[in-house]
């Protein structure tokens, strides 16, 4: 009983410990991605022809990935509205939006996996050139983050179905939403950088 009261006290702070922890986590993620983007800039600007002549015949699937980007952005909106609905105590809508977000995340990962299999078939691998290496490391790192966000979301969905969240108590949903929206917001930057630069 005492522990619960303490938990509620920390949850009612202007900035809870959980939210601050997620912000710090996202700060470190930003540094990781800025290092990878920095490496990409060196390779991209260091080569006059991009993709290099050895991979001149390989074309990245821009349209399919554009559609995939749209799906991920929609998932950001559904996640945001899931948070809004739990704040208004609309439990059914909250659960539906959470499942929708999870499905959109899974579709994004599936399409990306299919694209990768096609690119590997065409000869673009991690070892084939620096172009392949930076492509797979940068996009793969983001895909791992999406996978992490989906796993986190599955845990939140399980908790939502066991009635652990309400309009007064939803810090778990808030932190998951912050992380999900970060992953969604990061993708268009990587997409335009890697597929169009």
């Amino acid at each position: 009983m005492m522990a619960q009261t303490e938990f509620e006290m920390t949850e009612n702070r202007p900035l809870s410990n959980a939210k601050l922890a997620v912000l710090i986590l996202l700060g470190s993620e930003t540094m990781l991605f800025s290092g990878l983007i920095g490496a990409f800039l060196v390779f991209r600007m260091g080569n006059v022809t991009w993709p290099p002549l050895s991979h001149a015949d390989i074309e990245l699937p821009r349209i399919v990935t554009g559609f995939n980007t749209l799906l991920l952005i929609i998932s950001g909106f559904t996640m945001f509205h899931a948070l809004r609905s739990i704040q208004q105590n609309r439990i059914i809508l909250f659960r539906i939006l959470l499942i929708g977000t999870g499905l959109l995340g899974l579709i994004f990962l599936s399409i990306q996996g299919y694209e990768w299999s096609q690119l590997i078939k065409n000869g673009l691998t991690l070892q084939s050139s620096v172009y392949g290496a930076i492509f797979y490391v940068l996009i793969g790192c983001h895909a791992v983050h999406v996978l992490g966000a989906v796993i986190w979301l599955v845990i939140v969905i399980c908790m939502a179905f066991s009635g652990r969240f309400s309009s007064d108590r939803h810090i778990g949903v808030e932190t998951c939403t912050i992380y999900w929206i970060y992953v969604v917001a990061l993708w268009p930057i990587l997409y335009f950088l890697v597929y169009f630069a």
Binding site: T30, S34, G38, A39, L41, V42, M45, G46, N47, V48
Partner: peptide
């Protein structure tokens, strides 16, 4: 040379990131 310009932009980009991160937090 292109590679030097790449390094310059990369360094400038990465230099701006700690300020961005601490600013946002």
């Amino acid at each position: 040379e292109p590679i030097a310009r790449g390094f310059n932009w990369s360094v400038l980009f990465m230099m701006s990131m700690p300020f961005t991160v601490f600013g946002v937090i």
